[in-house]
Design a protein around this nucleic acid. Structure first.
Lengths: 135, 135
DNA sequence: CTTGACCTTATAGTTACTCAAAGGTTTATG
DNA sequence: CATAAACCTTTGAGTAACTATAAGGTCAAG
């Protein structure tokens, strides 16, 4: 099948598939006589795997590793689990950072009177001179 | 003062300051006779404001709006608060998405036996044929 | 035989910087 | 005074992961 159909089946865009090929995430698809990329059902499986992995939050480089494991019959499942749990930890950290930011923003907002006057505690906080008391 | 000192004071990198000028986030600094950028203490205040705004999670475009309000004596504080609360909402959404992802990853991982064998529930889930049962 | 839907490549744009190259200036040191 | 270190300048490329555009070739239908 051509790239358009493979795209429709996997939920990826044709451009994205070409991009994955370009960066070496996928082995280049075989070409038909007219030069069109031609995809087998096993190619489509790899594309599906990538679509799901990306949707699961893995970066391209992480997907490269996952794909490496998928295509390595000698893999050990514990290696896969490690990748996933490490990813989960990074996401936990990201969530924690966002929560801090969130608190900070609500803190800022809480002091603003939100009226028609120009004076605003938010702008003041963001402008604040950071003069550490010297001597 | 030169850019290096302004950078040190504000915690921004000199390159970042030049970048902000380049994209029009800052009005171009005045130049000394030798062509070096020269910063006044009021310039430094703007830089500080930007540093704090960025550290508070605002994007460059959001900073542009905040700076616009800061420099507009006719502003209304409620406009500022709206910006901040909308940002907080976007962050809430981001956190929720990450939590979902997190659950999904832990779900995936929970079925993997994590041993020396190659079969892995994670890879299976990510490869899964999405065959809707047709008649 | 032409229209429309495909496909191809190459290039630029997105976000927010960061780094490196190649060169001019200023300050410190001997 | 010479020169080396530490500044400053601009320009362009690199990062992540696409997305969109242009300019063009191919194919199926009417």
């Amino acid at each position: 099948m051509n790239i358009g159909k493979a795209a429709k089946i996997t939920g990826l865009k044709a451009e994205t598939i070409r991009y994955y090929e370009q960066i070496g995430l996928l082995t280049p698809a075989k070409r038909s006589d007219n030069g069109y990329r031609s995809y087998t059902s096993s190619d489509v499986e790899q594309l599906n795997f990538l679509q799901r992995s990306r949707a699961s939050g893995f970066s391209i480089e992480e997907c490269r590793q996952l794909l490496g494991l998928l295509n390595n019959p000698g893999r050990q499942s514990r290696h896969v689990k490690i990748l996933v749990l490490e990813k989960a930890q990074r996401i936990t950290r990201q969530i924690d950072e966002l929560k801090l930011l969130q608190q900070h923003l609500l803190e800022l907002a809480s002091h603003c009177q939100a009226n028609e006057a120009p004076n605003c505690a938010i702008l003041e906080k963001l402008s604040e001179h950071s003069e550490g008391g010297a001597s």
